[in-house]
């Protein structure tokens, strides 16, 4: 089994859509197992490289701040790397570099690169509902979770598979449990919930809009809600995406930020 649900980083920061990416083909009759469904999602979502322009709208108790960014992502031999540069005035030139499980931050004023401490990865990235850990999460969710197909359910007029993911033995993923709603026709993840070991709901991700690109249905607007905080949410919206983008050699590397 080689299911690769892309990390939230890939889907929400560096492409916003990879994890929830989809296939153009409709599902065959509802005889698929949970693993097969996740494989199907993965088969259709695999993007070798992409360039994405996007915005992140962070809302907290009535206050709203917008961040804009452009990102490059690349998946090679099961490892996902990415480079994201913020464009809004407050953060202009600030860059995040993801190399495997490591993250580095570039400060334009100092023109220096700082490694982000491991403990900070659990905290909100750029003051949002997304944590660094969400972004850095392993691509291979099937190595971290086991899946169970709970039922089918109508969600916003779309039929979905509801899949429950539980942390596999001897694995310590960011979230012990997840519940994933997958569109039965387009194989898009339309909703995802993240739970603690005590089955407390920690976060919820909802896909608001999907679009078709070169025969693929991809989510272009998603909302993350940290359930431990009062009245917050972060919307990630793709403004432009170029799939199979020819990323210049060395762009996604420590070298390019020095």
């Amino acid at each position: 089994m080689n299911v690769k649900l892309k990390s939230l980083f890939m889907k929400l920061i560096f492409s916003a859509l990879l994890p929830a990416a989809v296939g153009g083909a409709a599902a065959e009759a509802g005889e698929l197992s949970a693993e097969e469904i996740m494989n199907r999602v993965d088969d259709n979502q695999h993007l070798v490289s992409a360039r994405v322009e996007s915005e992140m709208i962070i809302e907290d108790r009535g206050r709203e701040i917008k961040k804009e960014m452009k990102s490059y992502i690349r998946t090679d031999n099961g490892r996902s790397d990415g480079l994201s540069e913020f464009l809004n005035p407050r953060d202009r030139g600030t860059k995040y570099l993801k190399l495997g499980d490591d993250m580095w931050m570039y400060f334009p004023d100092a023109e220096d690169l700082v490694h982000i401490s491991g403990h900070m990865l659990r905290q909100g990235m750029m003051g949002s509902d997304f944590s660094y850990e969400d972004i850095l999460e392993s691509d291979k969710l099937t190595e971290l979770y086991t899946f169970e197909l709970e039922k089918t359910e109508i969600l916003d007029d779309r039929e979905t598979y509801v899949i429950y993911a539980t942390a596999a033995k001897q694995q310590e993923p960011s979230y012990k449990m997840r519940r994933i709603w997958v569109d039965t026709e387009r194989f898009v993840v339309l909703k995802e919930q993240y739970f603690s070991a005590a089955e407390r709901l920690l976060k919820e991700l909802i896909t608001k809009r999907v679009e078709e690109f070169n025969g693929r249905w991809l989510p272009v607007e998603q909302v993350m809600n940290d359930k431990l905080r009062d009245d917050t949410r972060t919307t990630f919206r793709i403004k432009d995406i170029q799939l199979d983008y020819n990323i210049p050699e060395g762009l996604i590397s420590l070298d390019t930020l020095q």
């Binding site: 401490s117 403990h119 900070m120 659990r122 905290q123 909100g124 920690l202 431990l228 905080r229 009062d230």
Partner: peptide, 15 residues
């Protein structure tokens, strides 16, 4: 040394 944690039932971060 630096560290961080969630406090207040997870509603805010302390660094």
């Amino acid at each position: 040394v630096d560290t961080s944690w969630r406090a207040g039932g997870g509603s805010y971060v302390v660094v």
